[in-house]
Amino acid sequence: MTPTYYLLLSALLFTIGAVGVLVRRNAIVVFMCIELMLNAVNLSLVTFSRINGSLDGQIMAFFVMVVAAAEVVVGLAIIMSIFRTRRTASVDDSNLLKY
């Protein structure tokens, strides 16, 4: 099995994540889709690490995980606060700012 398939899978996951961001309304789901994109990248990194024969990629994946965790904290805090206000997590409801 060539590593290329992993790359394709990664690209597929990334695309699914991106499309998810576009089509889902719930802020949490949107956020999860973004996480999916990040993890797709992680898959790529590890694959490339394997292809390149260096460990850098794998280490980078760890970094990404840490960063993603921090992002989750911040993101959930923001989403929580707006959910408390609006009693809805739909991103489409926040559109006071426009035009």
Binding site: G75, I79, S81, L96, L97
Partner: peptide, 8 residues
């Protein structure tokens, strides 16, 4: 709203 948009 700005925070959510910016964040996402």
């Amino acid at each position: 709203e700005a925070a959510v948009k910016y964040f996402l």
